[in-house]
Design a protein around this nucleic acid. Structure first.
Lengths: 257, 257
DNA sequence: CTTGACCCTGACGCAGGGGCAGCCTCCGAG
DNA sequence: CTCGGAGGCTGCCCCTGCGTCAGGGTCAAG
């Protein structure tokens, strides 16, 4: 006759685990001796080891009970089911490893590589770090919502970066950051941006300018995000509005107010 | 300004999860409006997505908090740590898959292949199914306790099975199962077994006969296990005791009582 | 008689939320 | 102006597979 500790030792499990299996109904409660101790016969070791074998193979305890009673066919089906689950869990963790491998840099936290590359390009061009962060924060919800379109948008952005006018816009905006809303250079910037946009719309069409395809609600979100980080942007779109352009993330031509 | 539901939708998580992150201190509680609703700004979407990115990469929430605040070096170390954990979990699940793949047959539930093969051999020889089950149940704790020695013991058993005398022992024991303890054939069997053992001990040495190397406590366990399934075995060792052999799992020469 | 190793039950804790109850609030339609 | 449905709030219990107290009782040896 074995005590619970001896039983557990034979099967290589903890005493707590044995009691847990009793509580779950996997292992029948044995007789108690005069002082209330559980007393096991040798068969319990075998039962316990069978439970452990299934449990260690990744079978949830709730299914162990059924499987121990199941016949060959049912058992095989259950095994196949468990195997599929394990395979899925492995693949899940492999995806996690891939994702985590891309988290090395700070920007990578929620962004695909191409976006990180674009942000690094901005930095290399000397764009103010606050602007880069505003860009980054904008890309985060964008990439989360429409990951499949990120490559296309980034390609467009990269193309625009080949235009010195566009680069200058980023640089001047950075300079305007630390100045008040009524700085004359902000007005000059608005003039140049409006002219640039008009030229772009003529050359490539309004679709191209508008960053089309971003959902309105998301665009609005990204706008507020940008304004929170880069306050002068709010003033700038007011000025742009007077010059026939509304919006920020999505630009539209309007009649000047 | 976003409600909790909108925020959750942007990040692709449940409202419940957002509140959970508040409770865990991962996401700061935002301002409440006049009616007590949480009101989020656009930055919360970014914060939430960063949390999700880490969480989906398999980072435990408790570590997400630290990682979001950590600098590059610390962050990289944490990433490496998580990656090791994921790798270990993958390997664990791969082991599980291998194990359950071997659970196809009933006997396989807790036994290595060589033992299953041995049991099948017994069945093929016509040994009573109850005896096979008793053998199986004996091998279960044995294989659990000393898996590295199973191959050796099975080899010895298989060798013994080439001896017709040994096979006959199994067969006769099976016939004795359904008869009372005082059946004369049991006595005859005891005589033959004793003679066989004596001959074996002379040819191969007592070490060989004694199944040496099984811990005494384990041997005792296996004995009771055997007696529970095959009651006539208990009577048989009494008879053997009178013929100079004690034990069952571990046999020893004694002076007859 | 004490000590230390076991045993007992019951309860809380972990991750990452799900799902209820019971109430409050908002918004659009009639 | 009121009504209904959707959505918000807090707080509580539920899941897995045990680990880890807490607060006892029991047993064998010294």
């Amino acid at each position: 006759m074995l005590t619970i500790g001896e039983l557990a030792a034979y099967a290589g499990v903890t005493v707590r685990a044995v009691r847990h299996y009793h509580a779950k109904g996997l292992l029948p409660e044995p007789e108690r001796d005069h002082s209330g101790y559980r007393r096991y016969d040798a068969g319990a070791v075998v039962e316990l080891l069978r439970i452990r074998t299934l449990a260690e193979a990744g079978v949830p305890l709730a299914r162990v009970r059924d499987m121990l009673q199941a016949g060959g066919e049912e058992f095989a089906a259950a095994v196949a089911d468990i195997d599929r689950r394990l395979e899925a869990e492995i693949r899940e963790r492999q995806r996690h490893r891939e994702r985590i491998a891309r988290l090395a840099s700070g920007d990578g936290l929620a962004l695909p590589v191409e976006v990180v590359g674009f942000l690094d390009r901005l930095r290399a061009l000397g764009v103010d770090e606050r602007i880069v962060r505003a860009e980054r924060d904008g890309w985060i919800p964008l990439a989360a919502r429409s990951p499949e379109r990120v490559a296309e948008w980034i390609a467009r952005k990269r193309e625009q970066l080949t235009d010195p006018e566009f680069i200058d816009f980023y640089l001047t905006l950075g300079e305007a950051l630390d100045r008040g809303d009524d700085d004359p250079r902000l007005v000059a910037l608005a003039d140049r941006v409006a002219a640039y946009l008009t030229r772009l719309a003529e050359e490539r069409g309004e679709e191209y300018v508008g960053d089309a395809g971003v959902e309105p609600a998301l665009a609005e979100l990204m706008d507020t995000l940008a304004f929170d980080t880069v306050p002068s942007a709010r003033r700038l779109i007011e000025l742009l509005n007077q010059r026939g352009w509304a919006g920020w993330t999505r630009l539209e031509r309007v009649t000047p107010t």
